[in-house]
Each structure stands twice: as C-alpha cells, then as structure tokens.
Amino acid sequence: MSVATLGHQADHGHADGHDDSQAAYLERTRRNRLGMWLFFASEAFIFIGLLAARFYLWVDEGGQMMRPELDQVVGLIVTVVLLLSSYFMNRAEVSIANNNRRDFLWSLVITAILGTIFLVGVIIFEWGMLPFIFEGHLKPSDGVFGAVVFGMTGMHALHVLSGIVLIGNVWWLGRKGHFSAERHWGVEATAIYWHYVDLVWIFFYPALYLIGHAYGVGH
C-alpha cells in the first residue's frame, strides 16, 4: 500500500481526523520527520550566516585570517561535554526503542546535566558573566571579536537552552509512561534536535577556537 493512499485513509478514517492505527501513526511520523529536517535546513542558514560573518570580519589589515586567543582548555572541555551529551541522547532514544525505560530516563537526565554544564561553561568561562568566579576575555562591545564571539555563542546557547527544556519535558512525560517502543516521536524529535545543536557546535568550535592566527586579547 503506497504512502499516499495511507495518508488519505488516515484523513478520512475518522470524522475528527484522529486515526489511532499504527499505520496512521507512522504516516504522521514521516511527515513530522520531514518537517523537522526542513526546519534544520532553515536554521542552517542562520548558522551559516554567522559563520560567513566570522570569516568576513576576522581578517587583519594584511588579509590574514585571525581569531581572538580564547581559553583553549575551556573550549575543549565544553566541546567534549557536548559530544558526550549527544552520546547519551542517542542512548536514550535507543533505550526507549528497546523498551528499556530505566536506561531511557537515566540517559535523559545525564544528557540534560551535560547540556547544563555546557551552558554554564559558556556563561561563566566564555562570557565571563560572573567575574568574581572567572574574569572573561571579551565583552560584546570589543570590536568585531566581541561581536562575533557573543553572536555565535549566544545564538548557539539559545538553542542549547531550548534543547534542555525539551529534554526536561520529555523526561517528565516519559516518567508518566507517555512513550513506548512503537510510539516515541517526541523522543526522536528531541534527540535529533539535540544532535543538531551538537552538529552546529562541530563547526562553531573550530571557527571560534582553532582557525586563524591567534590575537592576544588578555585583559
């Protein structure tokens, strides 16, 4: 039976348009999935735009590619933390698909904790928002270095924050027994969103920390 006819029956089956069969659920999930990926494609343009701004602006008079000398240890740690969180997010999804609820819930908790550590790392160490703990290197108003660093990390942090909220929500619903091995689109959506946030960082990390000649910015 082709997808199109399935979709049609799903729409006509009940007057209130809510067909509860597994086939209809899969059909809805297919649509949701495509929608989610189109959303990623759309968002990619923000991040590509920011990267373009970074490579356009961080150039010195001689045309050399530059970067501000940020704290490499902080950069490496938050990167690894985010990567680890992606592993646990994946583990959560695999677990619910195997009906392993304990593992599912714990993996979500660990993912959220790691995400929070990433966020705190960015806010305290990258941004220096709490100067009594750590004196930051840059302020937003420090020329194009400040503007782009805060622009890129800020946009990314906003996505991390929303991801953490989603994970919390999925965890709460999961505890109430909301997902099953056959039906867990909510988990899948949150998972691929979280991986997407990780994916963005895969390109932001080298762009911010690794590429170009270091330019001392110590305060």
């Binding site: 602006l57 961080w58 530059m66 501000p68 420090d142 020329g143 194009v144 400040g146 330019y215």
Partner: peptide
C-alpha cells in the same frame, strides 16, 4: 579587531 573593524557592507 578588538576595538572596531565592523563593516556595513557585510
């Protein structure tokens, strides 16, 4: 780069 160099053409 620390005090300016933004570009309106961007």
């Amino acid at each position: 780069l620390m005090t300016g160099l933004g570009d309106p053409i961007l």
